[in-house]
């Protein structure tokens, strides 16, 4: 097995980022299917990818390691936020604002190396993007199919544009989120009343994807407007779809919305100058 992957780097990346995380996420989603903790499948998929590729390491605390730390913390914060569910909208805004501040913390070392005006404009941009993406994804917290479709679309789009922007690390990270969300979409597609993603599922998807995309912007070659295009994915899954449809059909339509929207950031990177 090891020798097989040693001579097939592309298959190794596919296994680390997609296949293994998907299998683990399906197991977690099935094991916890009757509880809201089924959405830990997103974390399980991402953690599997990390364990199989670079491993867990936090020193020195580089931007990539801060992203890892926050990605592991997001589900914990999401679970804690359930205690304040009665003030859901306020909590959602607060979490979005915190996501923006977290993005500054992650990339502070790089921003400090930039000139004044450039540092400010990039800093404001990453705050705005992280807060906006997290806010939009959090708004899907009552609908399992919409949230998981958004996770698949965002994860695939982020993974593909990361690969096109010279980052295999953020590619496999993005694909692992798609694998986790895909596992939930699949498992929940056959259930009439799947557990809602709540803050646990949506904060995990929103914060991870925001930081992976921003990491690709700051540490690789992603053009800034690809971030704006990524916002279309969670917006697309808010398009109308009948609630009384069969769960499988509804999931398929939302999946199609997400996939079509995911083509926009991919196309934006594809046609970017220098691509």
């Amino acid at each position: 097995m090891t020798e097989f992957f040693d001579s097939n780097p592309a298959l190794q990346a596919a296994f680390q980022g997609g296949i293994a995380p998907f299998v683990v996420a399906v197991v977690v989603a099935l094991a916890l299917a009757r509880t809201r903790f089924a959405w830990l499948a997103i974390l399980a998929a991402y953690a599997t990818q990390v364990a199989l590729s670079t491993g867990f390491s936090f020193t020195p605390l580089s931007a990539s390691r801060k992203i890892l730390l926050l990605s592991l913390a997001a589900p914990v914060v999401g679970i804690a936020a359930y205690a304040l569910e009665s003030r859901g909208r306020t909590i959602a805004y607060a979490l979005a604002a915190l996501a923006g501040l977290a993005a500054v913390w992650v990339f502070l070392g790089i921003l400090q190396q930039r000139e004044g005006a450039a540092a400010w404009s990039i800093g404001i941009g990453i705050v705005a993007f992280a807060a906006a993406l997290v806010a939009i994804v959090l708004s899907l917290r009552a609908d399992a199919a919409r949230a998981s479709a958004a996770g698949v679309g965002l994860g695939l789009a982020t993974g593909i544009i990361a690969l096109m922007s010279a980052s295999v690390g953020f590619m496999t990270a993005g694909i692992s989120v798609a694998a986790g969300a895909g596992a939930l979409l699949l498992v929940n597609a056959f259930r009439r009343a799947p557990p809602s993603p709540g803050f646990l599922g949506t904060l995990s998807i929103g914060l991870m994807i925001a930081l992976f995309a921003e990491g690709t912007l700051m540490l690789a070659k992603l053009p800034w407007y690809a971030l704006a295009a990524l916002l279309l994915v969670p917006l697309a899954v808010r398009l109308p779809v009948r609630d009384d449809m069969a769960p499988v059909a509804r999931a398929a339509i939302l999946f199609a919305y997400a996939m079509l929207a995911a083509l926009v950031p991919i196309a934006a990177v594809w046609i970017a100058p220098g691509s």
């Binding site: 580089s62 931007a63 990539s64 070392g109 790089i110 190396q113 690969l163 096109m164 922007s165 010279a166 980052s167 295999v168 690390g169 953020f170 990491g215 700051m218 540490l219 690789a220 070659k221």
Partner: peptide, 17 residues
């Protein structure tokens, strides 16, 4: 992407940081 672009990214030398 080229190999040198990839080497400059966070996967290897992380030149921005």
């Amino acid at each position: 992407r080229s190999r040198d672009e990839h080497l400059r990214s966070a996967d290897f030398f992380n030149a921005a940081e």
